[in-house]
Lab assay of single mutants.
Amino acid sequence: MDVFMKGLSKAKEGVVAAAEKTKQGVAEAAGKTKEGVLYVGSKTKEGVVHGVATVAEKTKEQVTNVGGAVVTGVTAVAQKTVEGAGSIAAATGFVKKDQLGKNEEGAPQEGILEDMPVDPDNEAYEMPSEEGYQDYEPEA
């Protein structure tokens, strides 16, 4: 019985440690998101679009440190934060509304985080759909 109880105690310690790591990862992701939003706020009209992409990228980098179902929630929060940063930029006159959601080359930025393969159960990952990809044929 002692062996059984000791095993359960060790398992509990492992769960607590994993929860603490997840909590730490979420806190880091939130900190990076805040950094990115402050970065966007300090940019001029020309830099705002690039700044919004930076927020998304920093958040995406930190999301990889967070495991399990938390990833889905962090990704949703990050996307809403990026959308909010863009709205703030438009409201303050840093950028025109028609410039939001495009990178410096004018290509749409939507789907940055949505296409990231995420499995809350950590069982399997699927690649994003290939609808947006084109076949590449090298020139002879």
Rank of each mutant, 00 (worst) to 15 (best):
E131D: 06
Q99F: 12
V66T: 02
M5T: 01
T81S: 08
V3M: 06
E57Q: 05
D2W: 02
M127F: 10
S87M: 12
D135L: 11
H50A: 13
N122R: 12
G84L: 11
A56W: 13
V3G: 01
K43L: 11
E130C: 10
E126P: 09
N65L: 07
E139T: 03
E61V: 10
V77L: 12
T54V: 14
G36R: 13
V118H: 07
Q134V: 03
K21P: 00
T72N: 11
M1Q: 00
A29I: 14
K6W: 03
A124T: 03
G67K: 05
Q24N: 07
V70Y: 03
V40Y: 12
A78M: 13
K60D: 01
N65G: 09
D119R: 01
P120W: 05
F4K: 00
Q79G: 04
V118N: 11
P128L: 09
V63M: 14
G41A: 11
P117R: 03
D98W: 11
F4N: 00
A91S: 05
E126A: 14
K96P: 05
E57M: 05
S129L: 06
E123S: 11
G86F: 15
K80H: 08
V15D: 00
V63K: 01
E61Y: 02
E13Q: 05
E114H: 07
A69G: 06
E137H: 10
K58G: 00
A69K: 08
G14I: 15
M5E: 01
D98G: 13
M5A: 03
T22D: 00
Q79D: 03
K60I: 10
G106P: 12
K32Y: 12
V55N: 00
H50G: 08
E83S: 04
K6G: 01
E114D: 11
E114Q: 04
K60A: 14
K12A: 10
G84K: 11
D2L: 12
E130H: 10
Y136R: 03
A124V: 11
T72Y: 03
E61S: 09
A89L: 15
M1D: 00
G41V: 12
P138F: 07
E137Y: 09
E131Q: 07
T64V: 13
G36Q: 13
K10V: 15
E137G: 06
A76V: 09
N103A: 06
N122K: 14
T72P: 02
A107E: 03
G25T: 15
V15P: 00
G25I: 10
L8H: 00
M5L: 00
T72Q: 10
A11H: 00
D121I: 12
D115L: 05
V15M: 14
M127Q: 10
K6P: 00
D98C: 14
T92G: 07
E13T: 07
D121H: 12
A53G: 07
T64N: 12
D121Y: 13
Q79A: 09
D119Y: 02
D115Q: 09
V15K: 00
L38T: 05
V15Y: 15
A27K: 08
M1K: 00
V26T: 01
E61D: 06
V82C: 08
K10L: 14
D2F: 15
K97V: 11
V82W: 15
A19R: 02
T59W: 14
K58I: 15
A76L: 13
A124D: 14
T54W: 11
T33F: 13
V71N: 02
K23Y: 06
A56C: 09
K21V: 13
V118E: 12
D115C: 07
G41N: 03
S9K: 14
E126T: 06
K34G: 02
V70T: 01
A56Y: 14
L113S: 11
A56V: 13
G31I: 04
Y125K: 08
G73I: 07
E35D: 11
S42N: 12
P138H: 06
K12F: 04
I88E: 02
V49Y: 14
N65V: 10
P108K: 10
E139V: 10
Y39W: 11
G73E: 04
T81H: 03
A90W: 14
V16W: 13
V52M: 14
G47L: 12
G51C: 15
V3S: 03
A27C: 11
M5H: 00
K10G: 01
V71K: 09
K60W: 12
P128E: 06
V26C: 12
A124M: 10
F4V: 01
V55L: 15
S9F: 15
K34V: 15
L38F: 08
A124G: 09
E57I: 11
G101Q: 07
M1G: 00
V3Q: 03
T92C: 12
A69F: 11
V40N: 00
K34S: 01
K21R: 13
G41M: 14
G68V: 12
D98L: 12
K6I: 11
P117W: 10
A140T: 08
A69M: 04
Y125T: 09
G86N: 09
K45P: 02
E114W: 10
V52E: 00
G93T: 09
A76K: 15
H50D: 07
V77M: 13
K96V: 14
T44S: 10
A107K: 10
D121K: 09
S129D: 09
V74T: 02
Q24R: 13
S42D: 03
L38S: 03
E130A: 05
Q99S: 13
D135R: 09
E139A: 09
G84F: 13
A69Q: 09
A11L: 13
D98E: 11
K34F: 14
V3N: 03
E114L: 11
K58W: 11
G68L: 08
Q99P: 02
V37E: 00
Q134F: 11
G73Q: 13
V71W: 15
G41F: 10
A19S: 02
K32T: 02
V63L: 13
A89N: 02
K43Q: 05
F94I: 06
T33A: 05
G14M: 15
L113E: 13
L113V: 15
M116Y: 12
I112S: 11
E61I: 06
G132K: 09
F4P: 00
E139N: 13
E105Q: 12
V55C: 08
G41W: 09
V82L: 12
A76Q: 07
V95Y: 08
E114G: 15
K21Y: 11
T59K: 01
S42E: 08
Y136A: 06
A17M: 13
V74I: 05
V82Q: 05
K60Q: 06
T33S: 06
L8E: 00
K6F: 03
A140N: 15
V40F: 07
E104R: 14
E131N: 11
K23F: 14
Q109H: 08
A140C: 13
Q62R: 10
E20S: 03
K32V: 09
Y136M: 09
K34Q: 02
E20M: 09
Q109F: 12
V66H: 03
V74H: 01
D115T: 11
K6C: 03
G68F: 01
G93V: 07
D98Q: 08
A11V: 15
K96I: 03
K97M: 06
G106M: 07
K45R: 11
M116V: 02
H50T: 12
Y39D: 01
T75A: 15
Y39R: 10
Q134C: 13
P138R: 05
D119F: 03
E28K: 08
G47S: 14
P117M: 06
T81G: 04
T33E: 00
Y133D: 10
A56S: 08
T81N: 02
A30Y: 15
V74C: 11
M5R: 11
N122L: 06
G106I: 12
A17N: 08
Q134R: 14
M127V: 10
N103V: 13
T92A: 07
K97D: 15
V70F: 03
D135M: 09
V48K: 01
P128K: 05
A11Q: 00
T75Y: 14
T59S: 04
G51F: 11
K45F: 13
E104S: 09
G67V: 09
V3I: 03
S87F: 04
G14Q: 15
D119C: 15
V3R: 15
P117Y: 05
E126Y: 09
Y39G: 03
G36F: 04
